[in-house]
Simulated assay, not measured.
Amino acid sequence: MRPSAFLHTVLPLLAVAVLHSAAQAAAPGTSVAIDLGEPAVRSRTVAFGPTAAPQSFTVGCAPGEQLLSGGYGDADPEVRVLASHPTDDQGGPVAAGSQPRAWTVTVLGLRQSAGSLRVSALCLAGGEVTAAAFAGPPADGLPDPPPAECPSGTVRSGGGYATAWQARLGAAVVSGSHPVGERGWAVDAGLTRGQAALRASNWATAYAVCLTGPVQPVAVEDVSFNLDTLARECVPGIAAGVCLVPRLGVATAHCPPGALTSGGGFRAGDAAGQRQYSVAEDGPSAYATWTVRVSAYTTDAAPAPMRLTPVCLFPVAAPDAPVGDLLPDSGASRNQALTIVGLLALLLLALLAVLALRRGRRRPTPVGGIEVVVRTVRTRYRTDQYREDG
């Protein structure tokens, strides 16, 4: 290959390769998945005696942990859950946008004996997210409570509800507590006959736990299940000759590999208002799963569909070093890029010197007189084009 052809062929390839290496040295580092932290379920089993007044029980996260959601389980069918929502350490309400520290469950015993249930808080330790709680607006006489909405720029991790209790009127009947839309949490609640006065008393409120940080939601399908029919029996206390069919259904959901199961919710299917539901479990059965267990009494064995909706979160990819250390004009990257450019310039000079030597060897010796040879070499790369940017 002629030297000039060699120069025109090899130099562009070398220049492109070296400049690409320089650009890689100056560019930000590769992206890695953010570690959301270590999830943990904080639980305790509580016992309560027969009483005509509701009782509340609270389980908190450890110091430094973030509350994702919470719930309950192992509740007796005769225990009615009036509230399951985020609170402060003492079980009190949190202001909109404030950090929740615990999960509180309020129950009412429907029989004259002691009862028990498990209260759980799903917490996250060591991550880079921050949790805040938001409550839905007052009902304003609407048939369903307005949902709680997480602000734009946040991600929903879980939610819950609370119903108002009045000694004479009781509380609303909750048939669903579940995600709605992209960042909302809704409560499906109805009133029985004679409870119209509850509409003016903020009779049900939805709550949402919202996260800020390197996390995004993962869309998953609902888990559909039906309430199986148990043996027909006549329930004492019901009008003579009326027999009810006991029903029971259980479902457990988990998120795809790599995603975090941060919460879950349940929702009754068709004809929800014609059945009396008792949700014995709605909470984390482990940090990677969410379980819902529902019982009901119906007048027939018609299908009673239910849905379980898990809430799944996935870490967002982020640079593997602080942004300030990855900028193109940072000290280490800048020095590395200048070193590469200097090596490229030396390589170009060496190739030009080799070319000049080869031309000198091939030049014929003149017989007499003076021979003047003028040659022109064109190249697209010049060493004076590489300079240090100020």
Rank of each mutant, 00 (worst) to 15 (best):
T339I: 09
L343R: 01
S175W: 14
A139F: 00
G390H: 13
A62Y: 06
R232H: 14
Y161E: 06
A189Y: 11
S295T: 14
Q24E: 15
P12I: 10
A114K: 15
A132Y: 02
L169G: 05
T163F: 04
L348A: 12
E371Y: 01
Y287T: 15
R118C: 03
A52W: 06
G265T: 07
P39C: 14
L327T: 15
S278Y: 07
Q66F: 07
P364Q: 11
T383R: 08
P54V: 06
Q66E: 15
A172I: 00
P12M: 13
C312E: 00
G170W: 10
H178C: 09
L351S: 06
R334M: 10
D222L: 05
L230I: 01
T30I: 00
Q385L: 05
G109N: 15
G190D: 08
Y161A: 08
G115D: 08
P364T: 10
T379W: 01
R358D: 12
W165L: 11
R101Q: 11
G97W: 06
D88I: 01
R275Y: 04
P322C: 02
A286L: 02
G258H: 03
T291Y: 07
L352W: 05
D282L: 15
D89L: 14
V41L: 03
V16W: 13
L313E: 04
R361D: 06
L244P: 03
I34W: 13
S56I: 00
R307Q: 14
S177R: 11
D384A: 11
R44W: 12
Q112P: 05
A95L: 10
L348P: 06
L11R: 07
A139Q: 08
V223C: 12
L313V: 10
A321V: 10
C234K: 03
D188H: 08
L327W: 13
P145I: 07
L260N: 09
L124C: 13
P147G: 07
C255Y: 00
G127H: 09
T298N: 06
A164L: 03
V377C: 03
G60T: 11
P28R: 14
V32Y: 14
A133R: 04
N202H: 13
A332W: 05
C210D: 04
R382D: 04
P305R: 09
G331S: 02
G194S: 00
A5K: 08
V59M: 08
L19E: 07
Y277V: 03
A251D: 04
E38K: 13
L19Q: 13
S116F: 03
L11W: 03
P28I: 13
V16G: 09
G213E: 12
V341A: 11
V46Q: 10
V105W: 03
Q99M: 09
R247H: 11
V174T: 04
V235H: 09
T130P: 06
P303N: 15
A353C: 07
F6Y: 07
W290G: 02
